[in-house]
C-alpha cells in the first residue's frame, strides 16, 4: 500500500465524523437546488476565501495607496490623491537616493534591482548545472537529489539562523579561514560581503526547488533524441546547446518566472540573517513595505500600499513581457 493511500486513510479517519454531519446537509441542498447548481455549492467556500483574502485586498490596497493617516480601516482614512506616490517620488536627484525624502525606498529599490538579477542568474545556473549532474547515469541519484533538495524544507528562519551561526565573527567559516592562516572577516558587518552572503544564502535555500523542476524537464526529453544525436556524432557541447537547451526552454521559462517572482518577494531569510543591514545594504522592497507599514510608528499604511502596488505592477509587467517573448519564440 502506498504512502498516498495510507495518508488518505488517516485523513479520512480524522474527518469521518464531520463528514457524517455534512452529508445530509449536502444531500438536502442537492434536493433543494438540483444537480445543476451543485457545482456552485462545491465552489462556494473556496470562492469566498479567494474573494475575501485575495481579490478584495487588491482593491482595498488601491484605496490605501490614495488615502492617508495611520488609521487601519478604510472608512477612517481621508483621501489624499496621489500624495503617497508623490512622497515616494519626492527626490531632488533620482540618481542619488539621499536627496529623496524617502531615501530608504530608493535604496531598497536599488538593492532589489541588483539583488534580483544576480540572485536569479546564479540560482538558475547552479540549479541547471545540478540538474544536469543529477540527470547523468550516476550512483545514489536519489540520495544526492535529496541532499540538494532538503534546504527547501527548512523554514527561512532556520536557514537564516544556520548561516548566521556559520558566518558570525567566531563562526565556523572564520574558524576554517584562521586555521588556514588567513585573517578572519566579519562577514555580515561589511555591506559588500553581507550582500554576497544574502545572495548565497537565498540561493542555497531555494535552488533545490528549481533543480527538481529542471530535472523533471530533462527527464522528459526522450532518450532517442540523444541517441540520434550520438549517431550524428554530435559533441557533448553541441548536444547541450542544440538539443538539451532548446527542448528545455519551456521549463526554463517557468523556472525563470517563478524565480524572479520569488526573488522579488525575498524577505524572511534576510530579515533574520541581516535585518536589512548593515545600514540598509541588504534591505529589499518587501522589507521596506513591512518596515513602513508595520514596524515603524506611526504605521504608514498608505505609503506601504503605494510601494506594494508599484511592486505588483512591476511584477505584472515583467510576467507579461516574459509571456510575450515566450509566445513569439514559439512562433519561429
Amino acid at each position: 500500500m502506498s504512502a498516498g493511500t495510507q495518508f488518505a486513510a488517516a485523513a479520512g479517519a480524522v474527518v469521518a465524523l464531520p463528514a457524517r454531519l455534512v452529508e445530509p446537509v449536502m444531500y438536502g441542498l442537492q434536493r433543494l437546488l438540483g444537480i445543476r447548481r451543485m457545482p456552485w455549492v462545491f465552489l462556494l467556500p473556496n470562492l469566498v476565501a479567494v474573494i475575501l483574502f485575495a481579490l478584495l485586498p487588491v482593491f482595498i490596497n488601491v484605496f490605501y495607496s490614495v488615502s492617508g493617516s495611520d488609521r487601519l480601516f478604510p472608512w477612517d482614512r481621508p483621501l489624499v490623491g496621489g500624495a503617497n506616490y508623490a512622497t515616494l517620488f519626492d527626490c531632488d536627484n533620482f540618481l542619488d537616493p539621499s536627496t529623496c525624502s524617502r531615501d530608504l525606498f530608493w535604496r531598497a529599490l536599488g538593492n532589489s534591482l541588483v539583488f534580483v538579477p544576480v540572485q536569479v542568474t546564479a540560482m538558475i545556473l547552479i540549479a541547471l548545472l545540478t540538474a544536469i549532474c543529477l540527470n547523468r547515469d550516476i550512483r545514489a541519484r536519489g540520495f544526492f537529489r535529496g541532499i540538494f533538495f532538503f534546504p527547501v524544507m527548512l523554514s527561512p528562519v532556520v536557514v537564516a539562523l544556520t548561516w548566521q551561526w556559520i558566518l558570525q565573527r567566531n563562526g565556523a567559516l572564520n574558524g576554517l579561514i584562521s586555521s588556514a592562516g588567513l585573517t578572519p572577516v566579519n562577514w555580515l558587518v561589511f555591506p559588500n560581503t553581507a550582500f554576497f552572503w544574502s545572495v548565497f544564502v537565498t540561493v542555497w535555500a531555494h535552488m533545490g526547488f528549481y533543480t527538481i523542476i529542471l530535472l523533471a524537464g530533462l527527464q522528459a526529453i526522450p532518450r532517442d533524441v540523444y541517441e540520434a544525436a550520438r549517431m550524428d556524432s554530435a559533441t557533448p557541447w553541441r548536444v547541450f546547446t542544440r538539443i538539451t537547451l532548446p527542448l528545455l526552454k519551456p521549463v526554463l521559462l517557468v523556472v525563470f518566472i517563478l524565480a524572479v517572482i520569488r526573488s522579488v518577494q525575498t524577505f524572511d531569510e534576510l530579515y533574520v540573517l541581516t535585518g536589512g543591514g548593515p545600514g540598509s545594504a541588504t534591505m529589499l522592497m518587501v522589507q521596506y513595505i513591512f518596515e513602513v507599514g508595520f514596524a515603524s510608528q506611526p504605521r504608514n499604511f498608505g505609503l506601504a500600499a503605494a510601494a506594494s502596488l508599484l511592486l505588483g505592477v512591476a511584477l505584472l509587467i515583467f510576467t507579461g513581457i516574459q509571456m510575450r517573448i515566450s509566445r513569439s519564440g514559439r512562433d519561429d
Partner: peptide, 18 residues
C-alpha cells in the same frame, strides 16, 4: 490569485483580519 504576491496585499489582508 497566483499572480498576487502575498506581500503585496499584506496591509489589506491585515485590515480584513482585524
Amino acid at each position: 490569485t497566483l499572480m498576487i504576491p502575498a506581500t503585496v496585499v499584506l496591509v489589506p489582508t491585515y485590515m480584513i483580519v482585524a
